[in-house]
Amino acid sequence: MRITLQSYTGKLRTTLTDLTARQAQQQARIATGERLLRLSDAPTDIPNIVSYRSNIAKLERYSSTLDSALAENATVESALVTIGQTMTDTHTLGIDVLQIANHDKWAVIAQQVLTKIRTLIEAANTSHGDVFVLSGTKNTAASLTPSPPEQMSVPFELVATTPSPSNPSGLEVRFKGNIEPRYVQTGDGNTEQVATTADAVFGTGGTEVFDTLITLYNTLAFHPDGTPRSEGQLPTAEQLDAVAALVKRIADASGRIQSTTSALGIRTERMAAQREQIDQDLTRQREFLSRLADTDVAAATMQLQRDQIAYEYSLRIGARIMNLSLFDFLR
């Protein structure tokens, strides 16, 4: 085959251009850490890369949701501990008032019961961020509009109504929230309830426990005719029976709170396990993605070196071949 000057230069030009382009590609791969500089670099890997990225984003989303739900559950758990303790204390007070030695101290113990009611309300109004945790889906101050005699935008409020024979103190605990459970998405097709509802803690309508405690307070603080009890005044036999029944109800309510706390704990544990599982999945997915999308720096560096050597030798050989011609030997 005849080799002409254009054959030399054309081939050399193509080789040098290709090698320069390859070096630039390897440099870009090393500099950016990205294996794919164009989609067409590895079309069969694209669906997997997109899918891994999508999975990672989704898992991060669930992870973040779980973090937020776990934080709220921790707040609820802490509130339930306070509520449970207060109920236990109140139950103890109930047992105490039934002791003969304490029959003359009902008026004093009544005040202690009232304090416990206030403590319970405070715990029931626990908020996480700007939402009340035991207020169902009506859980912001703005959605809890008070109507007289209510005064505050909180879910549970102790209000004073007109005294009546059945409620001589006129005290009442109002619940302005609702008992709708709140759910969060924790996986594909998986939801988990976050926090708990007021009825699960405080019984029917979210106020059963408070009604019991106010009845206890009324029984301790007032005579059956509705007049206030003073220190040293003794209860009637009917009142003793009533208090015994109330103590039993308080014990039942304490049991319910304990089981609600346990249920929340189980859910929290499940969510924590799910969170851990997601972390493991994330690590795996990131590794898969890295294998496809990240530069193998060692391989890229070696390839760059090979291309550099090829480039250098192409230049040398090109220059050497074109340097000599018959004209150099003509005199």
Binding site: E34, L36, L37, R38, L39, I49, V50, R53, S54, A57, K58, E60, R61, Y62, S64, T65, S68, A69, G129, D130, V131, N139, T140, A142, S143, V184, Q185, V194, A293
Partner: peptide, 27 residues
């Protein structure tokens, strides 16, 4: 493509924000 600012990342960010809003829709 291939890069960081794509429709895919914008979709992911949208769903992330929806998911965050679902944890506290009142915020």
């Amino acid at each position: 493509e291939p890069g960081e600012i794509t429709i895919q990342t914008a979709l992911q960010n949208f769903f992330d924000a929806a998911s965050t809003l679902a944890t506290n829709p009142a915020s």
